[in-house]
Simulated assay, not measured.
Amino acid sequence: MRVAGKALRLSIVVGDGDTWNREPVWREIVRRAHAAGLAGASVFRGMEGYGTTYRIHSRRFFAPSKDLPVAVIIVDAEDAVRRFLPQIDEIVTSGLVTMDPVDMLIHVADAEHVP
């Protein structure tokens, strides 16, 4: 079964070393998104990047990686995403947050799991 509709994509990019109450910020975002009942969240670790410091952070073969970029992507109805934004403002102290309107296609095997 395929479900289609309009949605909002929330992308949050933080450093993998950023923490909230001793936990990675990305983990706290996913935990809160789940608790808020958002449709889903995925976390992606970047191989290289730079941000406000303009220092390039990259993964090296023999050297430990430091502060690699991590992106959390959440897609849900616009009103649900906008209600969630104050929680992002609370826990993200350094990072980039973007929102984009998207056309959503959900493929589900079971109609019981349609959002």
Score class of each variant (00 low, 15 high):
Met1Trp: 02
Met1Ser: 10
Arg2Gln: 10
Val3Lys: 06
Val3Met: 11
Ala4Val: 11
Ala4Leu: 08
Ala4Trp: 05
Ala4Ser: 10
Lys6Arg: 13
Lys6Glu: 13
Arg9Leu: 15
Arg9Ile: 00
Arg9Val: 02
Ile12Gln: 00
Gly15Cys: 09
Gly15Ser: 15
Gly15Glu: 10
Gly15Asp: 04
Gly17Phe: 05
Asp18Lys: 09
Thr19Ser: 00
Thr19Ile: 09
Asn21Pro: 01
Asn21Gly: 04
Asn21Trp: 07
Arg22Asn: 13
Arg22Phe: 04
Pro24Asn: 07
Pro24Ile: 07
Pro24Gln: 06
Val25Arg: 02
Val25Ile: 11
Val25Met: 03
Val25Asp: 04
Arg27Gln: 11
Glu28Ala: 15
Glu28Tyr: 03
Ile29Arg: 00
Val30Asn: 06
Val30Ile: 11
Arg32Thr: 02
His34Leu: 07
Ala36Cys: 08
Ala36Glu: 10
Ala36Thr: 00
Leu38Met: 08
Leu38Ser: 01
Leu38Gln: 02
Ala39Cys: 06
Gly40Ile: 04
Ala41Leu: 04
Ala41Ser: 07
Val43Ala: 10
Phe44Leu: 14
Phe44Ala: 12
Phe44Trp: 10
Arg45Thr: 08
Met47Pro: 01
Tyr50Glu: 03
Tyr54Ile: 01
Tyr54Glu: 12
Arg55Thr: 13
Arg55Tyr: 07
His57Asp: 07
Arg59Gln: 12
Arg59Ile: 02
Phe61Asn: 08
Phe61Val: 13
Phe62Arg: 14
Ala63Trp: 04
Pro64His: 06
Pro64Met: 10
Lys66Leu: 11
Lys66Arg: 15
Lys66Trp: 13
Asp67Val: 01
Leu68Phe: 14
Ala71Arg: 15
Val72Ala: 05
Ile73Lys: 02
Ile73Glu: 09
Ile74Leu: 04
Val75Thr: 11
Val75Met: 03
Val75Pro: 01
Asp76Arg: 00
Ala77Tyr: 04
Glu78Arg: 14
Ala80Gly: 01
Val81Lys: 00
Phe84Ala: 11
Phe84Trp: 08
Gln87Gly: 14
Ile88Leu: 11
Ile91Lys: 05
Ile91Phe: 07
Val92Glu: 06
Thr93Val: 12
Thr93Tyr: 06
Ser94Met: 09
Gly95Val: 09
Val97Thr: 13
Thr98Phe: 12
Thr98Ala: 15
Met99Thr: 15
Asp100His: 12
Pro101Trp: 06
Pro101Ile: 05
Asp103Lys: 05
Leu105Gln: 04
Ala109Met: 08
Asp110Tyr: 08
Ala111Lys: 12
Glu112Gly: 05
His113Pro: 01
Val114Cys: 11
Val114Phe: 02
Pro115His: 14
